[in-house]
Nucleic acid binder design. Sequence first.
DNA 1: GATGAATGAGTATTCATTCAT
DNA 2: TATGAATGAATACTCATTCAT
Lengths: 214, 214, 214, 214
Amino acid sequence: MGIQERKEREKERRRQQIIVAAKRVFSDKGFNKATMEDIATEAELSPGTLYLYFRNKEELYASLSLRILQYLLISLEHVTEEKDMDPWQKLHDLMKAMFDVYDFDPLIIINMFHLQSSETLKNLSPEFLLKIEELSGKALGAMAKIFDEGIRKGVFIEKHPVALADIFWSLFSGVVLWEASKKFINQEKDYLKETLETAFEIFKRGLKAGPGQN
Amino acid sequence: MGIQERKEREKERRRQQIIVAAKRVFSDKGFNKATMEDIATEAELSPGTLYLYFRNKEELYASLSLRILQYLLISLEHVTEEKDMDPWQKLHDLMKAMFDVYDFDPLIIINMFHLQSSETLKNLSPEFLLKIEELSGKALGAMAKIFDEGIRKGVFIEKHPVALADIFWSLFSGVVLWEASKKFINQEKDYLKETLETAFEIFKRGLKAGPGQN
Amino acid sequence: MGIQERKEREKERRRQQIIVAAKRVFSDKGFNKATMEDIATEAELSPGTLYLYFRNKEELYASLSLRILQYLLISLEHVTEEKDMDPWQKLHDLMKAMFDVYDFDPLIIINMFHLQSSETLKNLSPEFLLKIEELSGKALGAMAKIFDEGIRKGVFIEKHPVALADIFWSLFSGVVLWEASKKFINQEKDYLKETLETAFEIFKRGLKAGPGQN
Amino acid sequence: MGIQERKEREKERRRQQIIVAAKRVFSDKGFNKATMEDIATEAELSPGTLYLYFRNKEELYASLSLRILQYLLISLEHVTEEKDMDPWQKLHDLMKAMFDVYDFDPLIIINMFHLQSSETLKNLSPEFLLKIEELSGKALGAMAKIFDEGIRKGVFIEKHPVALADIFWSLFSGVVLWEASKKFINQEKDYLKETLETAFEIFKRGLKAGPGQN
DNA sequence: GATGAATGAGTATTCATTCAT
DNA sequence: TATGAATGAATACTCATTCAT
């Protein structure tokens, strides 16, 4: 049993080693230009070995996104676990969590949007899609819970909490993606965090219960 | 001269014929899985002919996005041309313009995100990047003008108009992309318009000048 | 008949126009890299027109060599026509003729060796091969005649005149080709004429009747 | 170390296996008509494997020439190594070495002229050009050394030894190329060796120090 | 005759994946 | 387990040639 476990841990270590290498290579070259040999070289392994740990290139790629989803989920659970906290404070923490996620790995966030693109999703194995669905479902659910509380307490605008979660996530990911592409077009400096803060402020203001306006 | 002109028009017709075919094929299979032969077949032309009108596959693909950007720009100019219109009304029209764009070609909007991805942008010819930069610059500029007016008239929150334009665009594109990917994960029905309306409402509320809140 | 003739002359003019353009393009890019469109553009004609005057690319290419062979033949006939001239003087004139040919078009001489390569010869139409055979046969024959005279008069070494002509031509073409390739390898200055002179001098000395040596 | 070495030898064996197949196919079809797939089939390998051993088609082709250059160089070194040998004897051995080279691979000599053509040289990688330059430089140098000795000993005509080496090589290669092309034009029998012998005899006679003649 | 738009066969090269060792 | 040599399917792109005008 101890041996079994040690083996399991060893295997997980290898997976991580590969994922770390893959992250570097994919971020550098993008999905198509990155070759399995590049990744193997970066991981100081042989190409064949990668296939002992990942079914194929697409799945290795998707694993990166899974990892950031897991990180996101943990961050979100920290927020939702808190009982009796003011909804505005929770929202504030949620926003902070998103910054954390971005800081954890800005490039892989971009990759995750690539993953979201229908082209990549089409080519994933059903099991993998299921995992992604599960994780992102949980993450969305955690967000929705926060919004739900705020609505029930009468401090957030009365909208469907799931829709609010969707919008919140869309706003975040939209800003990250847009700022990333702006860099290529205009070669601008990195205004992402400022823009994100403004975006979140507007979202917050718009979320506040009370008379709206047309 | 008449002949010159007719030829020019004929040539443009061919370009459109190819673009329409490419749109179908790319939307169906995604950039990588779509082959030039697929597109040629769809356009009822030979592969070689495609290269008489587009330098390469990437540029053909990018042309689709250029087309939607042009459509967007025209829609926006209709809005900005109106003199003496209430900023809220203009914002309302801007939002309507985005719906128009989406209705014009929902799938090609997805393609535009692929275009925005750094991997694609890296492989585009400088001239093309310039065109994209020019068009998206104009579009952003038109949006920024609307926000600028609202700020100067004291009805919009005092933020940098360019940042507001960025956020508005990010929100729109983020929602479209996210809803598109949700379809793959959850196979949900199409809530996009509802979500977009809610998103816009929140944005509008958050934009209103007056005391904000933390 | 006058019309017929004028047409014929007009047609020949076009052929020459194309040949001149082809010469420039082939010399610049080599056979494979040069495209029919390049040549058409250079000749200020359309690609289709080239095919009204030449069956295909190979034959257009071979026509260039035919032209230099014709030039060579004329030069040689000037030499052989002279009656009662000292064989050494004739040999001297023959060598001068080769310099002329080289000066007439150094690059196309290189092309002629390319033509001689089996790859190109394999792909030529039988009629064309026949023309080449005829012309080069005549040229070789003219040379052989010179050597024959020298042998009969007892001033040249007693060898088969055709073999001597072959060797003379081989020496000339070998030096030209070798010097041309040296330019690519060593980027040396152009020693061709000097080398050619030395080569001819040695040949002449070696040709002299009398006791040889092992 | 034993394993390392065995692998190295195995790799070299593969290279040779490919080169041998390439030689057959190129000789048969010429550079352009020969496809990488042809060669792979001939070598009983897959097309992809060729690229594990040669960067591209041009380099595979050039490798054939490199091989004959190496063979030539070794033959020449056998000659130059001999101390205190009569220059005429050395020249005789040099000529014999050229016959050896021709016998070693008559077809590949033809290929070497294709290699020498500027068109091919233009498309070679700098490293490869360097290798060719080095090898042919050494070979020419070895020849020049023989001529230099003969001149210094007063038995050869007083000309620049490098020029003599150039002429010797030009004569040899010119004869081989010309005889090869004659086969296509006249379908003659193979007089090459005879012609070559005569050519060498003339060269030798012309080389002898003493009064020349105009 | 001249055009030049359209053709479509032809191929070098890449790279994810496999499997004998 | 790990290797890495070998595979071979897959495809963008070119360009000689044709033919309707």
